[in-house]
Nucleic acid binder design. Structure first.
Lengths: 224, 224
DNA sequence: ATTACTAGGGAGCGAGTAT
DNA sequence: TATACTCGCTCCCTAGTAA
């Protein structure tokens, strides 16, 4: 079954109280609650059971169900996403810790081929260096994976005599609710989705008094 | 398209910022965000457009979309439901105003055929009379429609020489976070879904100092 | 480069009905 | 009375590709 449908049915079962105990759930009643036929309710329950999102048992041939741990995780993640959508439309909020990079950010950020485009698209001249952030938990990591697939500003790569500089994509962002900068994704990044690279017109570690391990909040604008 | 799917796609578009302005939405990017193919994203967008949940326009052959007023209502109602599920699992919360009934509640509540069953299933002897509540808005009304379809406690009807008393269904409930009573649904109710009838072991108007027009909060337990 | 049509397959649905 | 199987129909999905 489609994961989108699974989530909505699990929320309905959660609403009925199946998140904390077994509840009596005759399929014809579930059917009314779901807005489907009795047969579909039966099928849905059995599919959720096969996928281990719910447990079920029968008392006098009547169905009792309870959401499993796996199901609860799915519900809670979904509810978190919905709330986040409501509270932060058009933005992705990230939290993570400052870590030291390999120091090569300064070199890249100061290449004239990039700088001119950053100025054009982002409206500022980046401080020569990037702030590396290790995201706090899996929710932010999966959000980062998603963000990275969106297009944002397209900074074109170029080549010099010595080597090739790949494409970079950028999204404007606000760091610690204070400084306007950007998140950048190098086309061939050495980092996985648990890391973010942030640039700004100023030296962020200095301006925000940041040291390795400090928590940082980055709000990425999707349409700015 | 299935209303459950519609809602999830609308939430995604809302998250992308389409709730407050037109956003650039190339179908291949939407596809990645939705987790479907480019072709499906295109189809989904056009179906949402046909159903008037979104507006769309093209700039240089690229799609820009915005959620319509109708779409926003759908999203907001859905988010409200999800939050409610999270905050009140196993309960339906209602708010409404005290209104005067036709006074026939006292007569019904004191029929021995009903009283014995109320005692058995609900654990209290109802005060002879019902508190009539007119629900505050459409959200509560649709929730009441849903609740009424669930089974709850089944109080069987009976007949006397004079007339027939129909079946009644009941759910335990807490009134104004203070008194434990029940919501009852007469099989052949004269009221629509905008009304609730509440009973309790005590005289609610007296115990809670209620007059016509006062706001009342009823928390219905689904599994109690 | 971007949208969206077409065709084929599979998922999801309700009615009828066996158990 | 309850669950859930079968069947036929529709809806939904993707790949290929036209515009």
């Amino acid at each position: 079954m489609n994961i989108r449908l699974i989530r909505t049915y699990l929320v309905d079962l959660y609403k009925l109280g199946a998140g904390s105990r077994y509840i009596k759930s005759p399929t014809n009643e579930l059917a009314m609650f779901f807005g489907v036929s009795q047969q579909s309710a039966s099928r849905i329950i059995n599919e959720l059971y096969d996928l281990e999102y719910i447990d079920k048992k029968y008392i006098d041939r009547t169905l009792w169900i309870r959401i499993t741990e796996k199901g609860l995780q799915e519900v809670e993640e979904y509810i978190k996403y919905i709330n986040d959508a409501y509270e932060h439309p058009g933005e992705f909020v990230f939290e993570g810790y400052v870590v030291s990079g390999l120091g090569e950010g300064a070199y890249y950020m100061s290449r004239r081929g990039y700088v001119l485009q950053f100025e054009k698209y982002l409206g500022f001249t980046p401080y020569p260096g990037t702030l590396n952030i290790k995201l706090r938990d899996s929710y932010y990591i999966s959000q980062n994976r998603l963000l990275r697939r969106l297009s944002g500003y397209h900074i074109k790569g170029f080549r010099t005599k010595e080597r090739v500089f790949g494409d970079v994509r950028a999204f404007k962002a606000r760091i610690n609710d204070k400084i306007e900068g950007a998140v950048i994704y190098a086309e061939r990044s050495i980092y996985g989705f648990e890391m973010m690279e942030v640039i700004a017109p100023v030296y962020l570690r200095g301006e925000l008094s940041l040291s390795d391990g400090d928590m940082v909040r980055v709000v990425v604008y999707l349409n700015k």
